[in-house]
Amino acid sequence: MTTEPLASHSPSSPDDGEVHHHVASARRHVIVLLALLGFTALTVGAYTINLGEWNLVAAVVISTLKAALVVWFFMELKDDVAFNRLVFLGAVIFIGLFMAYTMNDTRHRNRVDAYNGARVDPRSGEFAGGTAAGIVAQGGELGPLPVIAAESDGEAAHE
């Protein structure tokens, strides 16, 4: 481990039944904090310059890196036993499974049959029964932009 010099090992023997912490140096924690803040700035920066499709990827990758820093150093999984790492990893994997399989359904509901799962009957353009009356009234997913003139009324009513 390259970070080894930053940590000081307790010298006493490991099997005396006592708890032996790897007390990390304050300097390491400061470095991690600065890295985290840096990554946050990077995320916001990536947002302000539009990356299009890649925005989501960038956001998730940077967030994962940040989370990894927290888990590895602040939560000291770095020095923890293998099983605790497995517990954490297992939880993440199962969330992944849950998401992958669910979205495998929700993103493919109309592959085999164009009608199947379509929210709008493509032939008549009619919305399926039981949907929000509002969607139907507005004639689709997008309603008209609101008229700003109503603003003054709304404000008055509110104050």
């Binding site: 946050t40 995320t43 916001v44 990536a46 947002y47 925005n55 956001a59 998730v60 967030s63």
Partner: peptide, 10 residues
């Protein structure tokens, strides 16, 4: 994770 997923979508 919440921060970019909620606040930073283009």
């Amino acid at each position: 994770f919440l921060f970019p997923l909620l606040y930073l979508i283009d």
